[in-house]
Amino acid sequence: IRCIGVSNRDFVEGMSGGTWVDVVLEHGGCVTVMAQDKPTVDIELVTTTVSNMAEVRSYCYEASISDMASDSRCPTQGEAYLDKQSDTQYVCKRTLVDRGWGNGCGLFGKGSLVTCAKFTCSKKMTGKSIQPENLEYRIMLSVHGSQHSGMIVNDTGYETDENRAKVEVTPNSPRAEATLGGFGSLGLDCEPRTGLDFSDLYYLTMNNKHWLVHKEWFHDIPLPWHAGADTGTPHWNNKEALVEFKDAHAKRQTVVVLGSQEGAVHTALAGALEAEMDGAKGKLFSGHLKCRLKMDKLRLKGVSYSLCTAAFTFTKVPAETLHGTVTVEVQYAGTDGPCKIPVQMAVDMQTLTPVGRLITANPVITESTENSKMMLELDPPFGDSYIVIGVGDKKITHHWHRSGSTIGKAFEATVRGAKRMAVLGDTAWDFGSVGGVFNSLGKGIHQIFGAAFKSLFGGMSWFSQILIGTLLVWLGLNTKNGSISLTCLALGGVMIFLSTAVSA
């Protein structure tokens, strides 16, 4: 259960009878995928790494000078000259100064003066180019299975845990398959586009800190620079940016070097996208990844198990997540596992009318040892309800109150669905055939309105939902006002479609 501690969480529900669903994975976010007769899966884009970055340009932001020398000439005696002028490691300046009897010249006039100092770069920052084909995306998957609280967001041991898996995709191999043991396998067909235009970005490294910066900004930095990788004795261009020549006297000129420019660069980098280094690879934390999940090989585990009949206890007080759902960790005293956990939410304890829904599909106890633990997640209705676990006299209950409203949740879900469709863009549509167009249209309606429909009408039977949709269509056909007619027709059509397409 990876997503319960992530604030940016998206719930995606598969269409009834569908074998695939489109998701948008982004750094700092987590996606929970639910479908009829399929286990619930949490998917998170953990890291995006980039390798084989080529150094484009380096800037010196802290330097020192040494070996200063000057040469001067009297008027009419030609130009002052130093051998160091031809050495690229030196920074030199030529000027004219007033000369006369007082400073060793027989004539009054302008004399030539040249001053040089050896330039040494102490600290530099480097910009590297990123090729999209060198990106690698690491995705962690977790099935809502027989897990306890100690396994949440624990990325170790996934090789031997059938509840978890790690997959890596690249532009050259965008397809992967996550093996989930008894739950089958989940196929991923990803489109490795981060949403960032790397043709316009460089990877900047300064003092063990890293950013993504725009090329134009990078090339306009007014500091000494050299092109390409460091060859040991780089040729620094624009050395004068960190060196200041003071007022010249008759035979000498003082040279000083400016202080470190790291603070000024940090100020200019305010708002830039931060990154990290992992050995020789860069780690990015921006952008998104679009994936199509193929769920035809994914299956529920323990459908044929019998119900657990022994007593359950709450190991922890049920807690609310950031998303309005409830996490419950229970301990089973029996030894008759594997068995299914009898769990439901009810409005009252007399009729036990089921409300809400299970995020953890078909929760089971897989071990036959005593005191096995299991964590599950529920989506309670707004208002008061009861969490009921167990059967008969051994069942345990917990009162729950959820604040908020169904309308607010439906609106929030619609906005999130619209954002998801905007990110998917043209990849969500198939114009290759008439059937493809209608299929894409259905998927689009489901992406945007599916979660809201589930919130508003999830407790009704599909037949009642179709009746309401048919009534809206009838009202649309018999209303003389054009805008009201079109609105009723659209709402009725969407409702009829979703009542037959969205899983219960």
Rank of each mutant, 00 (worst) to 15 (best):
R2N: 10
C3Q: 06
I4Q: 09
I4G: 07
G5T: 01
N8A: 05
N8Q: 06
D10T: 01
D10E: 07
V12Q: 07
M15T: 14
S16G: 01
G17N: 04
D22N: 09
V23R: 01
V23F: 13
V24C: 06
C30M: 11
V31M: 08
V31K: 05
A35S: 15
V41Y: 08
I43D: 05
I43N: 07
T47K: 07
T49D: 01
N52G: 15
E55F: 00
V56Y: 03
V56M: 09
C60I: 06
Y61V: 13
I65G: 00
M68C: 08
S70R: 01
S70Q: 07
R73K: 15
C74M: 11
C74Y: 12
C74R: 09
P75G: 04
T76C: 08
T76Q: 06
Q77R: 05
Q77E: 14
G78N: 04
G78D: 09
E79D: 15
Y81R: 05
L82T: 04
L82A: 01
L82Q: 02
Y90W: 12
V91F: 15
V91Q: 01
C92L: 03
C92D: 09
K93Q: 15
R94I: 04
R94N: 06
L96K: 07
V97Y: 05
V97F: 07
D98H: 07
G100S: 08
W101A: 02
G102H: 05
C105L: 02
G106D: 01
F108N: 06
F108E: 05
G109T: 01
G109D: 13
G111R: 08
S112N: 12
S112H: 04
L113C: 02
L113Q: 11
L113D: 03
L113H: 07
V114H: 06
T115A: 10
T115D: 07
C116H: 11
A117E: 03
A117M: 10
T120M: 15
T120F: 01
C121F: 11
S122D: 08
K123M: 15
K123C: 04
K124P: 00
M125A: 02
T126D: 14
I130L: 10
Q131E: 13
E133P: 02
N134G: 04
R138N: 04
M140T: 08
V143A: 12
V143L: 14
H144M: 10
Q147C: 11
M151C: 13
I152A: 15
V153K: 05
V153G: 04
T156E: 11
G157M: 05
Y158K: 01
T160M: 07
D161K: 00
R164E: 12
K166I: 08
V167N: 05
V169T: 03
T170C: 07
N172A: 02
S173W: 11
P174L: 10
P174E: 10
R175W: 11
A176K: 06
E177G: 12
A178D: 05
A178K: 08
T179I: 13
L180G: 04
G181P: 06
G181T: 05
F183Y: 11
G184N: 08
G187L: 15
E191H: 08
R193K: 15
T194Q: 08
S199P: 03
S199F: 14
M206F: 04
M206K: 11
M206W: 06
K209E: 11
L212W: 13
L212N: 07
V213S: 03
V213Q: 07
H214P: 02
K215P: 15
F218Y: 11
F218N: 09
H219T: 06
I221Y: 03
P222H: 10
P222Q: 03
P224N: 08
W225T: 03
G228C: 05
G232D: 10
T233A: 14
P234E: 03
P234Q: 13
N237C: 02
N238M: 09
L242E: 06
F245M: 11
D247C: 07
D247H: 04
A250D: 03
R252M: 05
R252T: 02
V257D: 04
L258H: 09
L258D: 10
L258R: 09
A264R: 14
V265D: 12
V265R: 07
H266F: 13
G271F: 11
G271I: 10
A272Q: 12
E274Q: 13
A275R: 00
A275S: 06
E276N: 02
E276P: 01
M277N: 14
G279N: 14
A280H: 15
K283C: 00
S286D: 01
S286T: 12
S286K: 07
G287N: 00
G287S: 15
L289K: 03
L289S: 07
K290L: 07
K290G: 05
C291I: 04
C291T: 02
K294I: 05
K294W: 08
M295F: 15
M295E: 05
K297P: 00
K297V: 01
L298P: 09
V303L: 05
S304F: 15
S304Q: 03
Y305W: 06
Y305N: 07
S306L: 00
L307Y: 09
L307R: 14
C308A: 05
C308E: 07
A310D: 14
T315L: 11
V317W: 02
P318Y: 06
T321G: 07
H323Y: 11
G324Q: 11
T327E: 04
E329P: 07
E329K: 04
Q331Y: 04
Q331L: 04
T335N: 11
D336G: 12
P338S: 09
P338E: 08
P338V: 05
K340E: 10
P342A: 14
P342D: 10
P342S: 12
Q344G: 11
M345T: 02
A346T: 11
A346F: 12
V347N: 13
D348G: 15
Q350F: 04
T351M: 11
L352W: 06
R357V: 02
I359N: 05
I359D: 07
A361E: 04
V364C: 15
I365Y: 03
L376M: 09
D379N: 12
D379C: 03
P380T: 01
P381W: 06
D384G: 07
S385W: 13
I387Q: 05
V388G: 01
V388M: 14
I389E: 05
G390Y: 07
V391F: 14
V391A: 05
K395V: 10
I396H: 00
H399Y: 06
H401K: 13
G404T: 04
K409Y: 07
A410R: 01
A410C: 05
E412K: 13
T414I: 11
V415D: 07
V415G: 02
G417Q: 11
A418D: 13
A418H: 08
L424C: 09
T427Y: 02
N439R: 10
K443M: 15
I445M: 14
Q447C: 15
K454M: 13
K454C: 11
G459E: 09
G459Y: 13
G459A: 10
M460T: 13
M460P: 12
M460K: 06
S461P: 13
S461N: 15
W462I: 08
Q465Y: 04
L467G: 14
T470G: 13
T470K: 12
L471W: 11
L472N: 06
L472V: 14
L477A: 03
N478H: 14
N478D: 09
T479H: 13
K480C: 07
N481V: 09
G482I: 08
G482K: 12
G482W: 12
S483H: 14
S485I: 08
L486Q: 05
L489P: 01
L491S: 10
L491W: 12
G492D: 11
G492T: 01
G493L: 08
G493P: 09
M495D: 13
A501F: 10
S503E: 11
